[in-house]
Each structure stands twice: as structure tokens, then as C-alpha cells.
Simulated scan of single mutants.
Amino acid sequence: MEFTVQQIADLLQGKVEGDNLVKVSTLAKIEEAQQGALAFLSNPKYEPYLYTTGASAVIVSESLELQKPVSAALIRVADPYSSFSTLLQYYQTALIASKVGVEEPSFMGENTQIGENHYRGAFSYIGHNCKIGNNVRIFPQVYLGDNVVIGDNTTIFAGAKLYANTVVGSNCTIHAGVILGSDGFGFAPQADGSYKTVPQIGNVVIKDDVSIGANTSIDCATMGSTIIGKGTKIDNLVQIAHNVEIGEHTVIAAQAGISGSTKIGNHCVIAGQVGIVGHITIADKTTIGAQSGVSKTVKNPGTIIQGSPAFDYKENLRAMTVFRKLPELQRQLEELKGQQ
């Protein structure tokens, strides 16, 4: 795909400085870009590359004052990073939208309804009584069980598996290897020391505008639904257990694990390798630092916690400062004992 600098500026609501008819056909880092590429500059430490880059055009801040002549055409915008992200999104959407039609072999069950302008990749399987919206992209080797519902403009990448009765909203992205609706970890201990499986008969409900990273697993509810709220973004390799409820616009980084029946609020930030016990509540706008272990309810919105067990972030930093000094404190204590 090839665009003029002016076309890109119009898309980003920016202003062109230089030749607005220059054409670009690829995106690149400012330090690596060559002719025909579009780059961006948002971090001041990369400004020297602006004067040496081979890029045909660069997205820059409208407030940037040039220190030297620039050979590339400039597209001035309010926020270069956000504008470049918007451009990447348009580019990715255009690539995905180019996938249309049905590749064979593929299977679609009885009484399943599928909307217009869809794509079904080879070896995909869609069960019975499913309802799939318009502009849905289902890549090769995707499995959709019976009674699955998929909203408009949702993309399901290769190898994802959605168990029966899963509901996914509109404008969602489900990356490769995601599992939605597998059994929750429900086993009842018996008197003889064995464990009896507790049937998991609920489902998973994914609201609109959710992104789920590769190889993430979200378990179905024992009864009712495991729910992921609107706009929430989940990284790769995240485990979300049965009956968990996650609010709107929460972000969860890789290798986090959330135990059963925990409720997480809106606009929370959960960093990598966080572990959260079951049956607790996390308040809105809570931030949980990397590798934290959360063992109790967080009641106050806007709380920032860190550590295992997790507690107030600033107090944790102070505690870690003392912890690092423990060997020296012990040495001093032993010296004092020797002086007695």
C-alpha cells in the first residue's frame, strides 16, 4: 500500500511541512528508516536521528523547533506517539480487512448464522447454533463450539479455541492460542484423600473492545459467567480462573494469574507475574506492581500496592531499602555483641 504524505496528514489531522506529494509505503524506526518509509519522533533523545534519517517523512510534534535542516517531509501533530499508534492501527486493520471469503476445508454447523464480509480460514471449525456478526475474521484452525456468539468486527487469530456458549462482543481481538471457556479448577476433596471433579457449567462473556493476548486462558464459570469488561486489555500468557469478573478498561500484563471468584474493578493496572488469590475484591483504579502477591481485598480506589504479600507501594520501597541493608545491620550487631 502506498500513500502520499498529505493523505497521511489528513488521516492524522496534522499539517505537512515540506513536499506533501512524497509517497510512503512502509513504516520504520527513525534510526533505521530508508527512502519510502514513514517514521515518527516523540522521545527527545532520538531527535539527532531526525537530521540524518533516510525516511521520506517523519511525524513530529507541532511544537518541535528544528535545530538543523531536515530532508524528510514533516507531519506536525499534537502527539506524535499517539498519531503513529493510530496509523499502525489503520495499517493493521487494512491488512486484516483484506482477508475475505471462505478457505477450504472448513466446517460450519447447522443453524449457525454468520454476517456479511466475513473471513473463515482453512481448517476452522464453527459449531451448531452460533451467531457471528459482520466483518468477523476467523483465521485457520480456530475452533468455535456450539452456541458461541461473536459480535461485529471481531478478529480471532489462528489456533484460538472458544468452548461452547462463549460470548464475545464487537471490535474484539483474540490472539493465537487463546482458550476461552475451558473448565475452571474445581475439585472437591474427599474423605479418602482423593478429589472429585466439580462440573463447570457456566460460560465466558467478553464485552466489546477487549484484546486478549496469545496463549491466555480464561476459564468458564462453575455457574453463571466469567466476565471481562469493555475495553479491557489482557497480555499474553495470563490465567483467569472461573467466575472472575474484571471491570472496564483494566490492563493485565503477562504471566499474571487471577484466582476464582475474584472481582477486579475498572481502570486497574495489573503488572507482570502478579498473583491474586480467590474471592477478594480489587477497587477501581488500583495499580499492582510486578511479581506482587495479593492476598486480601483492596478497598480504596486508586491504591498502589507492591510486594508479596502486597502492601502500600511507598511503604514497600522503604521496607526493601531496610531489607537490602540487613546483612550489614547483622554484621554490626555481631560486632556489638563481640564488644560486650
Score class of each variant (00 low, 15 high):
residue 115 G to T: 06
residue 179 I to E: 06
residue 109 G to S: 12
residue 228 I to L: 15
residue 121 G to I: 11
residue 145 G to D: 09
residue 17 E to P: 00
residue 334 E to C: 02
residue 238 V to P: 06
residue 171 N to Y: 14
residue 32 E to W: 08
residue 335 E to T: 09
residue 177 G to F: 14
residue 175 H to C: 01
residue 67 Q to P: 04
residue 231 G to F: 08
residue 35 Q to N: 13
residue 117 N to H: 14
residue 14 G to Y: 01
residue 27 L to V: 12
residue 41 L to F: 08
residue 194 S to I: 00
residue 322 V to R: 10
residue 110 E to C: 00
residue 339 Q to R: 12
residue 115 G to H: 07
residue 23 K to Y: 03
residue 65 E to N: 14
residue 235 D to R: 05
residue 159 G to E: 12
residue 65 E to P: 07
residue 26 T to V: 07
residue 305 I to N: 03
residue 58 V to Y: 04
residue 59 I to F: 02
residue 157 F to E: 02
residue 323 F to G: 00
residue 230 K to P: 03
residue 162 L to S: 12
residue 113 Q to W: 12
residue 135 N to C: 01
residue 152 D to A: 05
residue 246 I to R: 02
residue 313 Y to E: 13
residue 315 E to L: 07
residue 292 S to L: 02
residue 218 I to H: 11
residue 225 S to E: 15
residue 106 S to C: 15
residue 275 G to S: 04
residue 270 I to T: 08
residue 234 I to C: 10
residue 307 G to K: 11
residue 232 T to R: 07
residue 328 E to K: 12
residue 240 I to T: 10
residue 282 I to Q: 01
residue 259 S to E: 01
residue 81 Y to K: 14
residue 79 D to S: 13
residue 50 L to K: 05
residue 177 G to H: 14
residue 102 V to H: 08
residue 256 A to R: 05
residue 55 A to G: 08
residue 60 V to C: 03
residue 206 I to R: 13
residue 281 T to W: 02
residue 38 L to S: 02
residue 23 K to H: 04
residue 159 G to D: 13
residue 58 V to M: 02
residue 318 R to Q: 08
residue 317 L to D: 04
residue 336 L to V: 06
residue 88 L to H: 12
residue 91 Y to A: 06
residue 58 V to C: 03
residue 329 L to S: 13
residue 30 I to D: 05
residue 322 V to K: 10
residue 61 S to G: 06
residue 194 S to L: 09
residue 87 L to I: 13
residue 33 A to S: 07
residue 314 K to D: 00
residue 15 K to E: 15
residue 34 Q to G: 09
residue 124 S to N: 11
residue 214 A to M: 10
residue 26 T to Y: 11
residue 92 Q to T: 15
residue 298 V to K: 04
residue 244 V to D: 00
residue 192 D to T: 09
residue 237 L to D: 09
residue 77 V to F: 10
residue 77 V to W: 07
residue 241 A to Y: 02
residue 337 K to N: 08
residue 157 F to P: 00
residue 61 S to H: 02
residue 86 T to V: 03
residue 181 G to W: 07
residue 244 V to P: 01
residue 88 L to E: 14
residue 25 S to N: 14
residue 47 E to H: 08
residue 263 K to F: 02
residue 272 G to A: 14
residue 194 S to E: 12
residue 140 P to V: 11
residue 244 V to I: 05
residue 247 G to W: 02
residue 196 K to P: 03
residue 218 I to L: 10
residue 308 S to I: 09
residue 164 A to L: 00
residue 157 F to C: 01
residue 276 I to A: 03
residue 301 P to C: 08
residue 206 I to N: 15
residue 146 D to N: 15
residue 26 T to A: 15
residue 325 K to L: 01
